[in-house]
Design a protein around this nucleic acid. Structure first.
Length: 786
DNA sequence: GGCGACAAACTTTTT
DNA sequence: GTTTGTCGCC
C-alpha cells in the first residue's frame, strides 16, 4: 500500500497527528479512536516521507502483546525495515539499555530480573525470623515507592529498615527487580552523560502509547531520553488510566506540555470500535468521575443493539448463562467462540467459567493468570540456570540447595546464606560459601555430604556451559542435580494431574534449544528476559493461543477489542471491590476500569450480576455494582433470571434486601434504594435466550427448570428476606467474644471460634453445631446470644 | 530433618 | 473450597 493510500484512510485529526513532527506532540485519544493506527502510521510516515531511519525510532507501549501487534502493523506498512524500529515496553527498553551499560551502575553483566516472589524471598533471607506475610506486605510498599522514585517515610521505621536492607541485598546479587529496570536506567543516564548523549543521538523520534499509565520513574526516564533533536509524541486517554495502584500518575499526561517544549495537542474524538449503544453506556458510567478532562467522544457506528444486564441468583448460574448464550451464538456463527471474551475483575473469578466451558466442550483460552513461568518445576529450572550463570543469586540457591532432598535443613541453609551475605572475601558467591562452610566445619552431620554433592554437581556443570547448546546444557544440569529424577517421581505420585511436570520441563528444554536462546550466555539472558517480562508468551500451546473464547481480566484487555463482551461479577465488593475501605479516588479508578472493559466491545455487550456467590465455601449475598446503577435506564435492557422474580414477586429482589446489606450502600446516596425498584420491575426478555425454557403462555419458566436452576441456592433468597424482616439491625452494643454460644436465624446454634481483622474490619468465625463454619462481619451479624 | 495431619488464611489489578 | 503454614511424631 502506498503512503498516500495509507494517509487517505485517516480522518482529519488522525492526519494532523501524523503530520506534526517537530517539538512535542500530545495526542488525547479516546477509546477506540485509532491511536495505535496513528502511532504506526506516524512511524511509516517518518520512515518513508521524513527520511528518518527505522532504527532511530523508539516506540514504547505498555504490554508485550501490544508491542508485537504494533511491530506487525509497522512491518505491514513499510516491509522488513519495520523490524528495525525499536518497539518495546518501558521495562524491556530498560533491560536493553542495562544489558549494554548496566555494569556502569553496579549490575552484574548477566543480571537477572527478580520478580515479586524472588524479591520477597530475598528480603526473607535477610530477616529469617520475621513473619513472611508481613514482609510480603512491606515489599509491596517498597515496590510502589520505587515506581514513584520515593524514599520511605522516616516515621515508618520498619519500612525504612526493610527498604534499605532490600536494596543492599539486591545490589549484592547484582540483579534487578521490576522497578530497577527503570530506576537503574535513570541512574545510568544521569551519571554517565556520554551514554545519555549517545542514546539521545540514536533516537530521533520517540512515541509513547498508553501514556496515562506511565509512572513517575518512567516519566523521568523519558525526559532523559529526549535530547534537543528528539521529537517526542505521547498518546493516551486519562479515562483509561487503570494502573494507579502501581504508581501510574494521570498527572503525567496532564503535565506533558509543561515537561516538553513546544507541545502541540491533537484530540481524537471519533470512536470507530464500538456501536453508539455501547459507547452510551460506557459514557453514562465514566461521566460520574469528577476528576477528568472534559472531552467528547462520538461513535462512528450509529445505533447497535442495546447492551444487556442479566440478573442471576448465583455465580454458577452466571457461568451457566454465559455458556448457554455462547452456545446459541455459536449455532448461527461458527466464529462466535473466537470473537467473544469473558471479562472479570479478579483472576480468581475465572475458575467457574473454566469449569463450565470445559464441561460443555467449548474451546477457550485464558490470558494471564496461570503462567507457565509460575509453575514450580519451571521456576526450579530457571533458578538452576540463574545459579549456574550467577553464583551470587542467593534466591535461586536457597530454592534449589535442598531440592531434591540432600538432607540440608533450614538451620544449615541459614548458616550457608549467612556466610555468603556477610563474608567479604566471598563477595556473595554462594558456592564459595558452601565450600568454606564445609572446609571450616560450620555445617554438621548429614548436611555435609549433601552440600558437597551440590557443589560437585555445580563444578561439573559449570565447565559445560557454553560448550553445548543451552537446551542440552539445562538437561545435563537437571540430570546432575537429580532434579529430573525428582520430577519423574512426582509425576508418578501426581498421576491424576493432567499436566505432567516432566513434560513442562521438556518443553522448556526444547525452548532453550531454539536458535535465539541456544547460544551461551547471550541466549540465556534473552530467555530469562522473555521469561520474566513476558511470562504469558511461554508455554502457549499452539492452537490454544487464540482459539476459542477469551477469558481475561479487565486490566489485561487494555488495547484489545472483541465483537462480543461478557462482563461478569458486576457486584459491589467484587467490582468495585472492597467498597468500604476505598477512597473516592479508588472508586474513580475502578470506574475507569469499567469504562475500559465496556469499550472493548465492538457490537455486543452483556453484563452479569449475581445476587449471591460462594465465597470461602459460604453463600454470601451480593449487591449489584454501583456502576450498573449509573447506566441510564433507557440505554440498557435488563433481564431478570432470578428464581424469586419468577414467582409472582413473592420473593422479589426489593429494597428490603438492599437494606440487609445497608452497610455497603451507605455513603453512595439514595440511588441505592431508588434503584432497588428498578430490579423488581421484573423485566423478562422473551425473545433471545429465555423462551426455550419457559412456558410461552405463562411468560414463566416451567417448574422443573426453575428448580433445577436454583436447587443449590434455594435457601439463600428466602433467608435473606427473613433476616431483613425480623432482625433489621444488630444493636451496636452487642459484642461477641470467642467461645460465646450464639443462635443464627439461618444456620442454627453455634460457637464463636475466632475473632480477627479481615479486609479492614472485624470479623467472626463461627462453628455451627451442624458442622458448617462461617465468617461474618461483626457489625453486620444478627446473632442471638444464648 | 522429613513427613503427614490438621488448622488457618484466603481474593485485587501487572510490568 | 483451596492453598499455605504449623505442629507433632518418626
Amino acid at each position: 500500500m502506498s503512503m498516500d493510500q495509507i494517509l487517505s484512510q485517516l480522518n482529519e485529526q488522525q492526519l494532523e497527528a501524523v503530520k506534526i513532527n517537530d517539538g512535542s506532540l500530545l495526542v488525547f485519544a479516546g477509546a477506540g479512536s485509532g491511536k495505535t493506527r496513528v502511532i504506526t502510521t506516524k512511524i511509516a510516515y517518518a520512515i518513508e516521507v521524513l527520511g528518518i531511519k527505522a532504527h532511530q525510532i523508539l516506540a514504547v507501549t505498555f504490554t508485550n502483546k501490544a508491542c508485537r501487534e504494533m511491530q506487525e502493523r509497522v512491518i505491514n506498512m513499510v516491509g522488513d525495515t519495520g523490524n528495525m524500529v525499536m518497539i518495546r515496553t518501558f521495562h524491556s527498553f530498560g533491560v536493553w539499555l542495562l544489558r549494554r551499560y548496566g555494569q556502569l551502575v553496579g549490575l552484574d553483566k548477566n543480571f537477572k530480573i527478580y520478580d515479586d516472589d524472588d524479591s520477597i524471598a530475598l528480603l526473607c533471607q535477610a530477616y529469617p525470623d520475621d513473619n513472611k506475610k508481613e514482609i510480603a506486605g512491606y515489599y509491596k510498599k517498597i515496590a510502589v515507592l520505587k515506581d514513584r522514585l520515593e524514599k520511605p517515610n522516616k516515621m515508618d521505621e520498619r519500612l525504612c529498615k526493610y527498604y534499605s536492607k532490600y536494596e543492599e541485598q539486591l545490589r549484592r546479587t547484582g540483579n534487578v527487580d521490576f522497578a530497577d529496570m527503570i530506576i537503574k536506567s535513570i541512574e545510568l543516564l544521569q551519571t554517565h552523560p556520554e551514554v545519555q548523549t549517545e542514546v539521545q543521538n540514536r533516537f530521533r523520534m520517540i512515541l509513547v502509547d498508553e501514556y496515562q499509565d506511565s509512572n513517575k520513574a518512567q516519566f523521568n526516564l523519558l525526559k532523559l531520553l529526549v535530547g534537543p533533536e528528539t521529537f517526542i509524541c505521547a498518546v493516551g486517554d486519562d479515562d483509561q488510566s487503570i494502573y494507579r495502584f502501581r504508581g501510574a500518575e494521570v498527572k503525567n499526561i496532564l503535565d506533558f506540555p509543561k515537561a516538553f517544549k513546544n507541545t502541540k495537542k491533537v484530540v481524537l474524538g471519533k470512536n470507530y470500535r464500538c456501536t453508539e449503544s455501547i459507547l452510551d453506556v460506557a459514557k453514562d458510567v465514566i461521566d460520574n468521575n469528577r476528576t477528568r478532562a472534559e472531552k467528547t467522544l462520538s461513535a462512528y457506528n450509529q445505533g447497535g443493539d442495546l447492551p444487556q444486564i442479566y440478573y442471576v441468583d448465583s455465580g454458577i448460574d452466571e457461568a451457566d448463562q454465559v455458556v448457554k448464550m455462547l452456545k446459541q451464538f455459536h449455532e448461527s456463527d461458527p466464529e462466535a467462540y473466537n470473537n467473544s471474551a469473558i471479562l472479570y475483575r479478579t483472576n480468581s473469578q475465572s475458575k467457574d467459567f473454566e469449569d463450565r466451558l470445559m464441561i460443555n466442550g467449548i474451546p477457550y483460552h485464558i490470558v494471564g493468570s496461570l503462567r507457565f513461568y509460575d509453575r514450580e518445576e519451571i521456576r526450579d529450572c530457571i533458578a538452576m540456570i540463574s545459579l549456574m550463570t550467577n553464583p551470587r543469586d542467593s534466591v535461586a540457591f536457597q530454592r534449589m540447595i535442598n531440592k531434591p532432598s540432600r538432607k540440608i535443613g533450614d538451620v544449615s541453609i541459614e548458616k550457608l546464606l549467612e556466610i555468603a551475605i556477610t563474608d567479604q572475601s566471598i563477595q556473595g558467591d554462594v558456592i564459595l560459601a558452601c565450600k568454606k562452610a564445609v572446609d571450616e566445619k560450620v555445617i554438621r552431620g548429614a548436611a555435609v555430604e549433601g552440600v558437597k554433592n551440590f557443589v560437585d554437581a555445580f563444578d561439573r556443570c559449570q565447565g559445560l556451559f557454553g560448550t553445548m547448546e543451552n537446551g542440552k546444557f539445562l538437561k545435563q544440569v537437571l540430570l546432575e542435580f537429580g532434579i529430573l529424577d525428582f520430577y519423574v517421581k512426582r509425576d508418578t505420585t501426581e498421576r491424576l494431574k493432567i499436566n505432567k511436570r516432566t513434560e513442562n520441563i521438556e518443553q522448556l528444554v526444547n525452548m532453550l534449544s531454539f536458535e535465539e536462546f541456544s547460544d551461551g550466555q547471550e541466549g540465556v539472558n534473552r530467555f530469562l528476559e522473555l521469561a520474566s517480562l513476558e511470562a504469558s508468551a511461554l508455554g502457549e500451546e499452539e492452537g490454544h493461543g487464540t482459539e476459542g473464547v477469551t477469558l481475561i481480566t479487565m486490566h489485561n484487555t487494555k488495547g484489545l477489542e472483541f465483537e462480543r463482551v461478557f462482563m461478569v461479577g458486576m457486584e459491589n465488593e467484587i467490582f468495585p471491590g472492597r467498597l468500604d475501605e476505598r477512597t473516592e479516588e479508588d472508586i474513580e479508578e475502578e470506574r475507569r476500569i469499567c469504562y475500559v472493559a465496556m469499550t472493548r466491545a465492538k457490537k455486543e455487550l452483556y453484563m452479569f450480576c449475581a445476587s449471591s456467590r460462594l465465597r470461602w465455601g459460604n453463600v454470601q449475598p451480593e449487591s449489584p455494582s454501583m456502576f450498573l446503577k449509573e447506566i441510564d435506564e433507557s440505554h440498557v435492557e435488563e433481564i431478570d433470571l432470578r428464581f424469586k422474580s419468577r414467582f409472582g414477586g413473592q420473593f422479589r429482589f426489593d429494597n428490603r434486601q438492599d437494606s440487609y446489606r445497608s452497610g455497603y450502600g451507605n455513603g453512595f446516596g439514595n440511588s441505592y434504594t431508588s434503584h432497588g425498584n428498578r430490579y423488581s420491575a421484573n423485566y423478562v426478555n422473551t425473545e433471545k435466550f429465555f423462551n426455550r425454557d419457559q412456558d410461552e403462555t405463562e411468560g414463566r419458566p416451567k417448574p422443573s427448570e426453575a428448580s433445577r436452576f436454583n436447587i443449590r441456592n434455594m435457601k439463600s433468597p428466602v433467608l435473606i428476606k427473613k433476616g431483613a424482616a425480623s432482625a433489621p439491625a444488630k444493636p451496636a452494643s452487642v459484642t461477641y467474644e470467642v467461645g460465646d454460644r450464639i443462635r443464627s436465624e439461618f444456620y442454627g446454634e453455634g460457637t464463636i471460634s475466632g475473632k480477627r481483622q479481615f479486609a479492614g474490619r472485624e470479623v467472626l468465625d463461627v462453628k455451627f453445631d451442624s458442622g458448617r463454619t462461617g465468617t461474618f462481619a461483626c457489625d453486620k451479624v444478627t446473632f442471638e446470644k444464648i
